[in-house]
Structures are given as structure tokens and as C-alpha cells.
Amino acid sequence: MAAHQPLPSQPAPVTQRGIFRWLHENLFSTWFNSLVTLIVGYFLVTTLVPMIDWAFFSAVFVGAGADACNPDGACWVFIEQRFGFFIYGFYPQELRWRPTLAFVLFALAVVPPFLPSPPRLRRWIGIFGLTGLPIGAYILIAGGFFGLEPVRTSQWGGLMLTLILSYVGIIAALPIGVVLALGRRSEMPVIRGICVIFIEFWRSVPLITILFMASVMLPLFLPDGVSFDKLMRALVGIVFFQAAYMAEVVRGGLQAIPKGQYEAAEALGLGYWRRMRLIILPQALKIVIPGIANTVISLFKDTTLVLIIGLFDLLGAVKSTISDPAWDNVMAEGYLFVAFCFWVFCFGMSRYSHGIEKKLDTGHAK
């Protein structure tokens, strides 16, 4: 009698491997999930396919003017023709190399810290990004130094102005917010009261009102002969407004630090400022990285409100061009371009914050 021979191994059924298994587990696991999948699929096919055709296949990307556009597709010629204005605003064309160089310096200050490099180099790059970059960028863009031709701030605009408002707002609001957060937790009633009033006042007023006040009312309180241009007044309002929100984010991080950390710092004999600088703040700021990133992204999007006081940021530059009779019916293309630019920068800042969290190991995984 022949010995029992086991059957050779058989491959898994087709529905239990590869793409079919993924579809079954994620899209068609139950009758309800299957119904939802079919409805969403129908919506995507009937909506996305015409949109993709309009945006890419039937679109016109290069041309001499509006006459080259296809009425059945997107007119990206509009973006191509006005791209310089959308990026630099009214900045003189022959001097645009200066803000372009400032953009390059900004990229050099932001990107290298996430590349393999010595810690000392990353530290110096960070110091340059916080101190040298704002000074160097101002000299390049504003001019008036080292033989550079001056350019009035009224000529600044487009994406360049959006980046200036957001970057200066971030760099200035963070340290002010840290000081306000420490002051709100101070044991001195006067300091604590001043910080509380400042934070609650600025958080209780809409940014659009602050911009109006900074543009119209602030000059009335300045001494005779002292004046700030419209951009500087807008920056003051944005910085104070965001500093109040940043203070509450930082205060949340300070409250999350265990009491034992404060007691341990005191036991080492450290003074108040050394305790905060060396022990408490580094831990608190790591904890609130997501909150800081959220505030920064919110600030970047809120810069569009400067349009109401006559500053032409990216959105303002696009809106002013759309009203040109030579470019009618390009509203969708203009706003899609603005949305894409904001998405790129906001998504980049979000990933940047996630990278910082990963490098600093702030997940507190168990």
C-alpha cells in the first residue's frame, strides 16, 4: 500500500492576494462599503474626468495673448503672461534679481538643516535664518544700501509680499509670544496682569479690524514727524496679533511640563531665566511644535487680508489682473493658481513641522 503523500502547496485564491485582496478588504468588504465605493466612484468619474480634461488636455499653456485660448479648456496663458506680476508685484523688472536672490537665501536657510550635515553647521544656518536672512533680504529688496537703487514698499507685491509678511510675522511673533507666555505664568501680579490684558485684547479683535486700525489710526498716535509706511503698519498689527495666539500655544506647552522638572531645575540652583532657557522652554517648545506649525500656517493664509488696506499680495495681484477686460473669463484659472501656491507652501510647512518632530523625537511613543 502506497504511503500517504501530501498534496503540493497551492497558491491562494485570486481574491485573497494582490490587488483583489486590497480591493476586497478596503472597498468591497461589506455591501454598504461596496455601495459607497460605487457612489463615490461615479461621482469622481463624472466630476474629475471633465475637470482633468479642462485643466490639461483641452487647456492652452503658451500663447501670445487671450486670443490663443481655447473656450473649452483652461487658459493658462493668463498665468504665463502675468507670472512676473504675480510673483513680484510692481517691483521694477530690471531689479527683480534682488528679490530672486533673497528667495535663494531663504531656501538655503530652510532646506540644509534637513540634509546630512554637521550639527555645528545646522546651528549656524539656523542663526543665519533668524538674524542674517531678514537683514540681508531687506537690504536686497528695499535697496538704499551699498549702491543698490531704493525701491518703495508700495511697489512690493505678489508672492514676494506674502512671503515677507508671513516670514517677518513668524520670526517676530514667536519670541514675543514666548515672553508673553512666561509673563502670564509669572508670580508678579503686575507683569501677569499686563500680559493677560495684552493677550486677551489682541485675541478678541479680528485681524481685519487690526489692519484697519494699524493703517488708519496708528499714524494719529505717532509724534509729529514720525511716520511708518503702510507695509510697516501692517507688519506691526500682524506681529502683535499672532504673538497673542503664539503665547497661548507656548503656555500650553509650559503647563504640560511636569512640576518635578521645575523643582529639579530649582534644586540645581539655577536662576529663573537659566531654568527657562536650559530646561523648561526646550521641553515645552518641543511639545507644542504641532500648535506652532498650525499658528504659522494660519498666519500665512491670513496675509491675504492685507488686500483691504491696499497692499497687493498674491491674491490681490491675481484679483487686480482678473478685472482687466483683456482677460475676461479667467477667474477660475487665477484662483486655482492662488490655491495651488498656498497649498504648496502650507503643505510644505506641515511636512517641515513633522520633520522637526521626527528629528527631536517628540512623539513620546511608549
Results as ranks from 00 to 15, higher is better:
F85D: 12
G193A: 00
R203W: 11
Q93I: 11
V45Y: 13
I87N: 04
F86C: 13
M160V: 09
S29T: 07
L207A: 03
G136D: 01
Y272R: 13
V178L: 08
F221S: 03
A264H: 07
W156C: 07
E333I: 11
G310I: 12
V49P: 13
A74C: 11
H364D: 14
L148H: 08
F221E: 04
R277S: 02
I39C: 10
F32P: 04
V14T: 14
M51K: 15
G132M: 02
I39M: 10
L35F: 15
V296D: 00
P134N: 09
S58R: 09
S215M: 01
T162L: 09
P119E: 11
L315I: 10
I292F: 06
A142C: 06
F32W: 10
I176A: 07
F345T: 02
Y335F: 08
L105M: 14
Y88P: 10
I257S: 05
W97D: 01
V338F: 11
I194P: 13
L101M: 14
A256M: 12
F106C: 14
M246A: 15
R17I: 12
K358D: 09
F128P: 04
L254M: 12
V104E: 08
A332T: 12
L299R: 00
M160L: 05
L161N: 01
P6Q: 07
M217I: 07
F114Q: 01
V151S: 14
F61N: 04
A181E: 04
R98N: 09
W22G: 00
I191T: 07
A265E: 03
V296A: 08
S186I: 09
I297S: 00
F201M: 13
N33A: 05
I127K: 03
Y138H: 09
I287V: 15
D67C: 08
Q261E: 09
G183V: 07
M246N: 15
E357I: 02
L121G: 11
K230T: 09
G291R: 01
I170T: 06
M232L: 14
